[in-house]
Write a protein that binds this DNA or RNA. Structure first.
Lengths: 100, 100
DNA sequence: CGTGTAAGGAATTCTGACACG
DNA sequence: CGTGTAAGGAATTCTGACACG
């Protein structure tokens, strides 16, 4: 769950190299609530590989002309999908355990 | 293979927080060839999660008083072990595919 | 709305070296 | 051998703002 993929350890300069997005863009997408980096005590942003993937998706959408507001909704619903899936899986597991 | 675990994206300050080792120690273990961070164009070191794990192992060994030279040998042989295992696995797979 | 840029300050990282032991 | 530290420079990151559109 709190695996390498979700650990916030990458600084914004590296995210820039990984995604090709400008620092300005990366910060702006945070302002628009598309991503949620963590902050070190001193205030520098730290991103996860998961954030990098999301940014790559955002870049694609933006190229298609989709606005950040729409992209946010998409990201949220796809996340909701994952949560639902996880919950269902949990239910199924419980079910089959009972019938064993 | 070139997964999140091995991607070199973590700066030394973050490695310090993750491992508790001082910057001096982290750099020194590189000098002694226990770890191999990459360098950005400008020269700052970048580490992978794998490097962080190795550093944690190094810290344990050092507490036991093991010298860096010994630790390096241990790390190399454990790596050799992994490579051998992988090669064997490949051979086994090939074997069973043939008998199918 | 989304992104570029110049501005000034604060923290980061780098290297080579001296120190202790 | 392994690690601390002070030293000076170079690059990073941050925020708030003006600009364009």
């Amino acid at each position: 769950m709190s695996s390498y993929k979700h650990k916030k350890v990458i600084s914004i300069g590296t995210v820039n190299e990984l995604t090709g997005l400008s620092l300005r863009q990366i910060r702006y997408y945070e302002e628009r609530q598309l991503i949620y980096p963590e902050r070190t005590k001193r205030g520098t942003r730290k991103y996860s590989f998961s954030d990098v993937e999301t940014l790559l998706q955002i870049a694609d959408k933006r190229e298609e002309g989709v606005q950040t507001y729409e992209i946010r909704k998409d990201l949220q619903s796809s996340n909701k999908g994952k949560v639902m899936e996880r919950m269902l899986r949990g239910q199924l597991n419980a079910h089959f355990r009972m019938n064993k």
